[in-house]
């Protein structure tokens, strides 16, 4: 198990390889579709951003509301690929170094991860009650009007991650799945009903 702390530097990132299990402690910022769009629009308009993302990690999550006395409600990852149109700018221009979510990334994002020495982590989709227990502090730091899509600053302890795409561009999904695949994929095979007959 690799134990790491935020903010991330390249020395830490380059040692982590696709499929490695990681335990992360420190600060995370949350951000989903609406927050990403607003951050990019704000940057492109030349205005000041509400958070400094240099060396930071964004967790793609829209948590449930906290019950009285609790830090946060259930808080598992959302599907990352919806953020892909905005990710290259966040990494290249704003210095974002890590992302936490679930699911595949586009080739454009994989390329940016390689070029900039960033990293994409996975955490367990639908294990939201368990993951919320690793969040020790939560406060909204931007866009409260977005409700669950606001940007929160989270402090986490031993947050469980798997390296999804490492800084060499390798994918945990591709490597994990190829070991267990017994049949050809029907996607991208060019196989159609017509030419099968």
């Amino acid at each position: 198990m690799n134990r790491i702390k935020t903010p991330l530097d390249f020395e830490t990132i380059r040692k982590l390889k696709a499929g490695d299990q990681v335990s992360l402690s420190g600060v995370l910022f949350t951000g989903r579709d609406a927050a990403h769009k607003r951050l990019v629009d704000t940057y492109l308009a030349g205005q000041e951003l509400p958070v400094d993302l240099r060396g930071q990690v964004i967790y793609y999550v829209g948590p449930c509301p906290a019950k009285p006395g609790k830090v946060i409600g259930s808080a598992g990852p959302t599907t990352s690929i919806r953020m892909d149109p905005y990710t290259p700018l966040l990494v290249r221009e704003l210095g974002l170094r890590g992302m936490i979510g679930k699911g595949h990334r586009s080739q454009k994002v994989v390329d940016v991860i390689k070029e900039e020495g960033a990293i994409y982590f996975l955490t367990i989709g639908g294990a939201a009650a368990l993951l919320a227990q690793r969040i020790k502090k939560a406060e909204v730091v931007a866009y409260p009007e977005f409700g669950p899509e606001a940007i929160y600053r989270l402090e986490v302890e031993d947050f469980p991650l798997i390296v999804g795409v490492d800084s060499d561009g390798r994918s945990a999904y591709d490597e994990g799945q190829s070991k267990y695949r017994l049949i050809h994929s029907v996607v991208g095979s060019g196989e159609t009903l017509e030419n099968r007959r």
Binding site: C64, G73, S74, T78, I124, G125, G126, A128, A129
Partner: peptide, 27 residues
Amino acid sequence: LGKDMLGIIRENAKLAASTGEPICQDT
């Protein structure tokens, strides 16, 4: 790793049932 993932999913469901917290944040 697959067994681990299934184990975590079960543990999460158990925790949700006992605490009344949602299984997934996407309700």
